[in-house]
Computed example of a mutant assay.
Amino acid sequence: MSFDDQQPIDYQNYLPEAPPSFRSTTTEMATTRQTEEVKAAIFMAKQFPRDQQASFNRIMLSCQRKKLAEEAEYEYPKGGSKVSGPSIRLAEVLAQSWGNIDYGLIELEQRNGESKAMAYAWDIETNTRRQIVFTVKHERKAGSTTKQLTEARDVYEVVANMGSRRMRACILGVIPGDIVDAALAECRKTLVNSYTEPLADRVRKAFQQFQEKYGVNKEMIEKCIGCAQDAFTENDYLRIGNIWKSLRDGMGKREDYFDFGAVHVPSAAELEFKAQQEAEKAKADGDPDAAE
């Protein structure tokens, strides 16, 4: 037999196999710890069940805080209409005050420029569980451009941002809907009663902030809300506040709320004519500076 006829030796077959106890010790320890934690949580939930009336009172008391009330509701456009609901901040307060609820966000794996994560909420007392598994690409879109994310911090932020929305949905899935509605109503009531400044002044300042930060003028806001500035109510003020938070948090773009295509940009001739009219009016009113 020649050397060419010899089969290569697979040395892996001759290596000693690691004992099962060595290979699985870490895994078994982690599994045992998690199992014991779950058992302890179930035991405590059964030993100390929630007092629904006390939990409801805690939620109502929390919703009387102005800071929470300002962050309690979001709003964004979808399909020609507006969608609003409780924010992740309110959902977290509901879970904490309702009690015996475990919730969170877990990144399952990360590879090929994307992360696979799971958001969940578990009512330990009633054994009601909601979970959502989703995939997040490591990219950030800005207008028509897409930027690939490579820094660990950027990846964490985009996964946390996408995961917070799923976690909110999971929490709201295990808490009774009437409790959520009552919390939202209490937050709106807190906002209305917590302002000492007149509504007209608050609306005027809001219009100014929209103009300075996002380039949204008075006519755009009035068209979005459907009424003139002088006719704004407390609910209309809350609506533009929700739009402000949505723009600030990146939930939507200004073009989603306001019609920039319908904005009239005055020409140079129009501006000159307007300036002449203002000068003539000032002169007629006896303004000494207008005569110069």
Rank of each mutant, 00 (worst) to 15 (best):
Y14P: 00
V203I: 00
D154G: 03
N127W: 10
D181E: 09
K67W: 11
F258M: 09
E222M: 04
T25F: 07
E17Q: 13
V180M: 03
D4S: 12
L90H: 01
A284H: 08
T196K: 12
A91M: 02
K141C: 04
V136P: 05
T190I: 09
Q276V: 07
A206T: 07
V216Q: 03
A119C: 10
A200F: 14
T196M: 06
L238E: 09
L61E: 14
L271V: 15
E222S: 12
A269M: 07
L61C: 05
K253R: 08
F3D: 15
I88F: 02
T26V: 11
A284F: 12
I59C: 06
Y11C: 03
Y214W: 02
T35K: 13
K274V: 08
S62A: 15
I243E: 06
I59H: 03
A275S: 08
A182V: 10
M29C: 10
V93C: 00
R168Q: 00
C170Y: 00
Q96H: 04
V155F: 04
I88L: 05
Q211E: 02
A54I: 03
A41N: 11
A95V: 00
P20L: 00
A69S: 11
K223Y: 08
T135S: 09
G286R: 14
Q148F: 07
D51Y: 03
G99L: 02
D256V: 07
